[in-house]
Design a protein around this nucleic acid. Structure first.
Length: 495
RNA sequence: GCCGGUGUAGUUCAAUGGUAGAACGAGGGACUCAUAAGCCCUAGAAAAAGGUCCGAUUCCUUUCACCGGCACCA
């Protein structure tokens, strides 16, 4: 067997100041589906996810609860760790190394410090006095984007104070030309192309240095800055390093070299950090750049309305799974299905509990589930087992080429859509056209050939579905192998 | 404001300089292997105005609407 290139896929690390939301569930499910796809294609795969645990917001939240940040983050990290079993992630698949990193892990902290030193040795880190805008009314620092007409929108009658603070900065400005060249040399670096264009425009305007540390007296919850006990790293700097520390950098360079570079999934609000800032940091540390940055859109509520707590339209991934637990043994696959099938790969999409139920009924209950039952009913009744069927190699090859082509372009929405439009629908039509259930009385030989053909194709659908709906695909495969009807409907009607 | 994008059936999307396709939803029909599922049929669409062209949904211009980006929120 030819050794295929090892594949390293990572999600961003969600900030643990809130429970997992459906947008992150989508990100991690897409990354998981891609990981499974590459594994099935014969690659060894490293799958990384985890939690980003430093920074002011977490420090404040912990303080408000009156607990140490360590205690607070330990609790929240477990909530995110629980996503793996709940979402059917590939945590125990041979050939896929599942890694859950916390930015508070000892190795990660050491890696962040080492990374800092590399950038510093390069001359890309310097200390600078700069002024932050401070609203006395809010008792908070304000960024320019938070201001209206140079004033705090909550306290427009108060003058902003300018407070001086000394922080470390990263010489992002050194990398304007290098990033431009890198982008030009890697025309598929950011996916989709319109997100890449945004980055080209951003870098094209010229880059400003950004701050990468905070005063420890104000915010102690961070990785210490090497050689300066008064400062901790700003959470971005430390968190981004996880993509290399997760695969052993710098202490296990053999492991690092095996897996790097990485395919990174992230939301559209993370484009700049991943595609520009992190890439400049890698250049500074003399490490090769990432391989691809894949940018997801957001999930909105009905009519494209943003989800927000105040509107009460926030969709919780665990609620979705819960809503289907009584009608199917695979409620996690229902969530995976709607996130992959109903949301465009690169644009924003809408999702509500109502739309999920409609999609479930149309595609899983009346589609895949029903098709499996009707085929397996005939297969068991006529004693047709799954070996020695005639097959239709041409059609199958074309279909799988479309699916795998779409996967390799990160268009998982297109890939799973193809399985429904050119797989399931065609088999239902075939049954209607050939009527093997009638033919069995007049021409049993032909009828059994028809059923064998159906079994063959149902199996190929199950194979194609493995990256997307792993448990369902496995169950359909089992039914075919063991020549059994489903004991209960795979996807029963909702009450 | 500047830059980029989008505007096609009730909804989500597709293709195309020459008859605009599909899926979901809606209405109807014949069947029965199946989860009253599935199959077949039907209805239903180019934001507005101008230009180029024999011919424009497609190319160009303008208007309108919506979306994204324009750095320290992770």
């Amino acid at each position: 067997m030819v050794d295929k290139k090892p594949i390293y896929i990572t999600t961003t690390l969600p900030y643990v100041n809130a429970d997992p939301h459906v947008g992150f569930a989508m990100e991690i499910i897409r990354a998981d589906a891609l990981a499974r796809y590459y594994r099935l294609a014969g690659h060894e795969v490293y799958f990384n996810t985890g939690t980003d645990e430093h920074g002011a917001k977490i420090y404040e939240a912990a303080t408000n609860e009156g607990v140490d940040p360590e205690v607070y983050t330990d609790k929240l990290a477990e909530r995110f760790r629980a996503l793996a079993p709940a979402l059917g992630l590939a945590a125990n698949i041979p050939g896929i190394t599942f890694n859950f990193i916390r930015t508070t892990d000892k190795d990660h902290v050491a890696a962040a410090e080492e990374f800092w030193k590399k950038c510093e040795a390069k001359g890309d880190i310097y200390k600078k006095l700069y002024s932050v805008k401070y609203c006395v009314g809010c008792e908070l620092e304000k960024t320019d984007s938070e201001l209206e007409n140079g004033r705090c929108p909550i306290h427009p009658n108060r003058e902003l104070e300018f407070r001086e603070e000394e922080n470390y900065f990263f010489r992002f400005s050194n990398y304007t030309e290098k990033l431009k060249k890198f982008y030009d040399d890697h025309p598929d670096f950011v996916i989709p192309d319109f997100r890449f264009n945004e980055m080209r425009a951003f870098v094209g305007r010229g880059l400003e240095d950004f701050s990468i540390s905070r005063l420890k007296t104000k915010m102690p919850w961070g990785v210490p800055v090497p050689g300066d006990p008064d400062q901790v790293m700003y959470v971005w700097f430390d968190a981004l390093v996880n993509y290399v520390s997760a695969i052993g950098w710098p202490k296990d360079m053999a492991k690092f070299t095996k897996w790097w570079p990485v395919i990174q999934y992230c939301g559209k609000d993370n484009n700049r950090q991943q595609s520009a800032m992190w890439q400049a940091m890698l250049m500074s540390a003399d490490l090769p750049n990432s391989e691809h940055i894949v940018i997801n859109g957001f999930i909105n509520s009905a009519g494209g309305q943003k989800m927000s707590k105040s509107l009460g339209n926030v969709l919780n991934p665990f609620d979705v799974i819960d809503a289907f637990k009584d009608v199917t043994p695979f409620p996690d696959d229902v969530l995976r299905f709607v996130l992959l099938h109903d949301i465009p790969s690169f644009e924003d999409g809408d999702l509500t509990m109502e739309s999920i139920k409609a999609s479930y009924a149309a595609h899983l209950q009346n589609g895949l589930g029903n098709l499996t039952s009707r085929i397996m009913k005939m297969a068991t009744s006529y004693a047709v087992v799954y070996t020695d069927y005639p097959g239709d190699a041409t059609v199958e090859t074309q279909k799988s080429a479309v699916v795998s082509g779409a996967c390799e372009q990160f268009d998982l929405h297109k890939a799973i859509g193809e399985i429904w439009s050119n797989g399931i629908g065609m088999l239902d039509a075939f049954i209607q056209r050939e009527e093997p259930f009638k033919k069995i009385k007049t021409d049993p030989v032909r009828a059994k050939e028809n059923v064998a053909y159906l079994l063959n194709n149902l199996l190929s659908i199950a194979q194609a579905l493995k990256p997307f709906l792993p448990r369902t695909a496995e169950e359909i495969g089992r039914l075919i192998r063991e020549n059994k009807m489903p004991e209960k409907p795979l996807f029963a009607r909702l009450p």
